[in-house]
Amino acid sequence: MTFKLIINGKTLKGETTTEAVDAATAEKVFKQYANDNGLDGEWTYDDATKTFTITE
């Protein structure tokens, strides 16, 4: 399955995708991506669209 991450950061904005077997796996990938890029914010997830959002 394809999951999307929408980034609404103070300095970084955009989106990225990952292929994962489930939402929990995708969340780990996206949280590592956010950590690697210095993002810290509030996370939301929409199961209907398989989309995570981080807002700083």
Rank of each mutant, 00 (worst) to 15 (best):
Met1Gln: 11
Met1Lys: 13
Met1His: 09
Met1Ile: 10
Thr2Asp: 08
Thr2Gly: 08
Thr2Ala: 07
Thr2Pro: 09
Thr2Asn: 14
Thr2Phe: 07
Thr2Gln: 15
Thr2Ile: 14
Phe3Lys: 00
Phe3Ala: 00
Phe3Ile: 01
Phe3Glu: 00
Phe3Ser: 00
Phe3Asp: 00
Phe3Pro: 00
Lys4Phe: 05
Lys4Asn: 05
Lys4Asp: 02
Lys4Ser: 06
Lys4Met: 09
Lys4Gln: 04
Leu5Met: 08
Leu5Glu: 00
Ile6Asn: 07
Ile6Tyr: 07
Ile6Asp: 03
Ile6Glu: 05
Ile6Gly: 02
Ile6Phe: 11
Ile7Pro: 01
Ile7Val: 09
Ile7Leu: 15
Ile7Trp: 15
Ile7Tyr: 15
Ile7Cys: 04
Asn8Ala: 07
Asn8Asp: 13
Asn8Ile: 14
Asn8Arg: 12
Asn8Lys: 11
Asn8Gln: 07
Asn8His: 13
Asn8Gly: 04
Asn8Thr: 07
Gly9Asp: 05
Gly9Tyr: 11
Gly9Phe: 14
Lys10Tyr: 14
Thr11Lys: 14
Thr11Trp: 10
Thr11Glu: 10
Thr11Gln: 14
Thr11Tyr: 14
Thr11Val: 14
Leu12Gln: 09
Leu12Glu: 10
Leu12Ala: 05
Leu12Asn: 06
Leu12Cys: 04
Lys13Pro: 11
Lys13Ala: 14
Lys13Trp: 09
Lys13His: 10
Lys13Glu: 15
Lys13Ile: 14
Lys13Ser: 11
Gly14Ile: 12
Gly14Thr: 15
Gly14Lys: 11
Gly14Ala: 15
Gly14Pro: 11
Gly14Glu: 08
Gly14Gln: 12
Glu15Ser: 06
Glu15Trp: 04
Glu15Asp: 08
Glu15Arg: 04
Glu15Tyr: 07
Glu15Val: 04
Thr16Glu: 07
Thr16Ala: 13
Thr16Gln: 08
Thr16Trp: 15
Thr16Tyr: 13
Thr16Lys: 14
Thr16Gly: 08
Thr16Val: 15
Thr16Phe: 12
Thr16Ile: 14
Thr17Arg: 11
Thr17Lys: 14
Thr17Gly: 04
Thr17Ile: 09
Thr17Asn: 13
Thr17Glu: 11
Thr18Phe: 12
Thr18Val: 15
Thr18Ala: 06
Thr18Trp: 07
Thr18Glu: 05
Glu19His: 12
Glu19Tyr: 12
Glu19Val: 10
Glu19Trp: 11
Glu19Asp: 08
Ala20Asp: 03
Ala20Leu: 03
Ala20Trp: 02
Ala20His: 03
Ala20Tyr: 02
Ala20Arg: 03
Ala20Gln: 06
Ala20Asn: 04
Ala20Lys: 03
Val21Trp: 13
Val21Gln: 06
Val21Phe: 09
Val21Ala: 08
Val21Glu: 14
Asp22Arg: 03
Asp22Cys: 04
Asp22Val: 03
Asp22Ala: 03
Asp22Met: 03
Asp22Lys: 04
Asp22Trp: 03
Asp22His: 05
Asp22Pro: 01
Asp22Tyr: 04
Ala23Arg: 12
Ala23Leu: 07
Ala23Ile: 07
Ala23Asn: 06
Ala23Pro: 12
Ala24Gln: 14
Ala24Ser: 05
Ala24Trp: 13
Ala24Asn: 10
Ala24His: 14
Ala24Gly: 14
Ala24Val: 13
Ala24Glu: 13
Thr25Leu: 12
Thr25Gly: 09
Thr25Gln: 14
Thr25Pro: 02
Thr25Arg: 12
Thr25Ser: 09
Thr25Tyr: 09
Ala26Gly: 02
Ala26Val: 02
Ala26Trp: 01
Ala26Glu: 00
Ala26Met: 01
Ala26Gln: 00
Glu27Met: 15
Glu27Leu: 12
Glu27Ala: 12
Glu27Asn: 07
Glu27Pro: 00
Glu27Ile: 10
Glu27His: 11
Glu27Thr: 06
Glu27Ser: 09
Lys28Gln: 10
Lys28Leu: 15
Lys28Ser: 13
Lys28Tyr: 14
Lys28His: 15
Lys28Cys: 04
Lys28Arg: 09
Lys28Glu: 14
Lys28Thr: 15
Lys28Pro: 03
Val29Lys: 07
Val29Leu: 11
Val29Ala: 07
Val29Gln: 09
Val29Pro: 01
Phe30Trp: 03
Phe30Lys: 00
Phe30Glu: 00
Phe30Leu: 06
Phe30Cys: 01
Lys31Ala: 07
Lys31Gly: 05
Lys31Ser: 06
Lys31Thr: 08
Lys31Asp: 03
Lys31Arg: 08
Lys31His: 08
Lys31Ile: 15
Gln32Pro: 01
Gln32Gly: 09
Gln32Lys: 12
Gln32Thr: 12
Gln32Glu: 10
Gln32Val: 13
Gln32Phe: 07
Gln32His: 07
Gln32Trp: 09
Tyr33Ala: 03
Tyr33Gly: 01
Tyr33Pro: 00
Ala34Cys: 05
Ala34Asp: 00
Ala34Glu: 02
Ala34Gln: 04
Ala34Gly: 04
Ala34Thr: 08
Ala34Leu: 06
Ala34Trp: 03
Ala34Ile: 14
Asn35Glu: 09
Asn35Lys: 12
Asn35Cys: 05
Asn35Ser: 12
Asn35Leu: 09
Asn35Asp: 14
Asn35Met: 14
Asp36Arg: 07
Asp36Thr: 09
Asp36Asn: 09
Asp36Gly: 08
Asp36Trp: 06
Asp36Phe: 13
Asp36Cys: 05
Asn37Val: 09
Asn37Trp: 08
Asn37Met: 08
Asn37Tyr: 12
Gly38Lys: 15
Gly38Asp: 09
Gly38Phe: 10
Gly38Asn: 14
Gly38Ser: 15
Leu39Ile: 10
Leu39Asn: 03
Leu39Trp: 14
Leu39Cys: 04
Leu39Phe: 13
Leu39Thr: 03
Leu39Lys: 02
Asp40Glu: 12
Asp40Cys: 04
Asp40Gln: 10
Asp40Arg: 06
Asp40Ile: 12
Asp40Trp: 06
Gly41Glu: 01
Gly41Ile: 02
Gly41Gln: 02
Gly41Arg: 01
Gly41His: 02
Gly41Leu: 03
Glu42Gln: 15
Glu42His: 10
Glu42Asn: 10
Glu42Val: 12
Glu42Asp: 14
Glu42Tyr: 13
Glu42Pro: 05
Glu42Trp: 07
Glu42Ala: 14
Trp43Ala: 01
Trp43Met: 13
Trp43Thr: 02
Trp43Tyr: 03
Trp43Phe: 10
Thr44Arg: 07
Thr44Leu: 09
Thr44Phe: 14
Thr44His: 08
Thr44Pro: 00
Thr44Ile: 11
Tyr45Gly: 00
Tyr45Glu: 00
Tyr45Thr: 01
Tyr45Cys: 01
Asp46Gln: 09
Asp46Gly: 02
Asp46Phe: 05
Asp46Val: 14
Asp46Cys: 05
Asp46His: 10
Asp46Ser: 06
Asp47Tyr: 14
Asp47Gly: 10
Asp47Ser: 15
Asp47Leu: 08
Asp47Pro: 13
Asp47Glu: 13
Asp47Arg: 10
Ala48His: 15
Ala48Phe: 11
Ala48Glu: 14
Ala48Tyr: 11
Ala48Leu: 11
Thr49Tyr: 07
Thr49Pro: 02
Thr49Asp: 05
Thr49Trp: 07
Thr49Ile: 15
Thr49Cys: 04
Thr49Ala: 08
Thr49Arg: 10
Thr49Met: 10
Lys50Ser: 13
Lys50Phe: 09
Lys50His: 13
Lys50Leu: 15
Thr51Gln: 05
Thr51Glu: 05
Thr51Asn: 03
Thr51Ile: 07
Thr51Arg: 04
Thr51Leu: 04
Thr51Cys: 04
Thr51Trp: 03
Thr51Lys: 04
Thr51Met: 07
Phe52Asp: 00
Phe52Ile: 02
Phe52Ser: 00
Phe52Lys: 00
Phe52Gly: 00
Phe52Leu: 01
Thr53Leu: 05
Thr53Pro: 00
Thr53Arg: 07
Thr53Trp: 06
Ile54Phe: 13
Ile54Ser: 01
Ile54Asp: 00
Ile54Arg: 01
Ile54Cys: 04
Thr55Gly: 04
Thr55Asn: 12
Thr55His: 08
Thr55Pro: 01
Glu56Asn: 03
Glu56Lys: 03
Glu56Ser: 04
Glu56Trp: 08
Glu56Arg: 02
Glu56Tyr: 08
Glu56Val: 07
Glu56Ile: 06
Glu56Thr: 03
